[in-house]
């Protein structure tokens, strides 16, 4: 009986292995930073040249800003971000215990704005929310991304992988076909990265702005002529969780720079 179950497990493992023949072995993972040109790398390494550091400064100011009479600033509840927010960005998205909902970092910030500060949450992609995200991400710089699976998010990892492998859009392509099976190749002159989300939010020269991971997802979806999910949709969060599982152990280098 036990032997048979064991054999079934081995068979399952073999099948799973066969299904994911395109998984990138840990030793061969490259971040977007590793794959970009020396000039963009230098810009990311130098905090005085990295335009995303302006967002960090703005985020720091917002962290301390009192939103109104008798309402706490972020610092009012959390104190010094360098201590209280260290490692937070490296382990998000996370499950909110009371509600059971999955929150990505911007979603968590919005929930605090709404529930704790009693103000209207800043919309996704607004400069204010991106600034707070960038400020928090900086507090995890250099830390390894935590494994969502190890924190009990298997269900989300599985849903996210399903989305990652699903062909979408008029061009009928999946994320995996580009980022797992053709990374390093040239899509009309652009090198396809492995899609490890180590550096978000980040400054992208093409955007001439700081943008979120979901903005990047949306760009890839519209590139294959697919209808993107709405901002903050659970599908985006599942995708982020899967990408973070794939990138677990890689170091946070936010806020990054991309061409």
């Amino acid at each position: 009986m036990i032997r048979r179950a064991g054999r079934a497990l081995v068979l399952l493992a073999v099948l799973a292995g066969a299904l994911n023949a395109d998984e990138i072995p840990p030793g061969e993972r490259l971040s977007g930073y590793d794959m970009m040109g020396a000039e963009a790398q230098a810009m990311q390494r130098d905090d005085f040249a990295n335009p995303a550091m302006l967002a960090v400064k703005e985020g720091e100011a917002l962290w301390h800003a009192v939103p109104g009479e008798g309402r706490p600033s972020c610092a009012g509840c959390h104190g010094d971000a360098a201590a209280s927010m260290k490692g937070v960005a490296a382990r998000y998205p996370a499950r909110d215990v009371p509600s059971g909902r999955l929150f990505d970092l911007p979603g968590r910030i919005q929930a605090c704005q709404n529930g704790r500060q009693g103000i209207a949450p800043q919309p996704r992609e607004s400069t204010g929310l991106l600034a707070l995200e960038a400020y928090l991400a900086l507090q995890s710089r250099g830390m390894p991304l935590a494994s969502p699976r190890a924190r009990g998010l298997d269900d989300a990892v599985q849903r996210g992988e399903g989305l990652y492998r699903q062909r979408f859009g008029q061009l009928d392509l999946s994320c995996a076909q580009c980022h797992s099976q053709n990374w390093g190749r040239s899509l009309a002159g652009t090198r396809i990265p492995q899609a490890h989300p180590t550096g978000y939010p980040l400054f992208r020269m093409e955007w001439q702005a700081v943008g979120s991971l979901q903005r990047r997802f949306r760009n890839c979806m519209t590139g294959i002529r697919a209808e993107p999910f709405p901002p903050g949709a659970p599908e985006w969060i599942d995708l982020e969780i899967y990408l973070k599982e794939r990138a677990a152990g890689m170091r946070v280098d936010a806020p990054a720079v991309r061409p």
Binding site: F168, Q170, R225, A226
Partner: peptide, 13 residues
């Protein structure tokens, strides 16, 4: 195809 963008739905490339 799945979730074809609004501007492209019902049309071939």
């Amino acid at each position: 195809q799945i979730r074809v963008g609004r501007a492209f739905s019902g049309r071939s490339i």
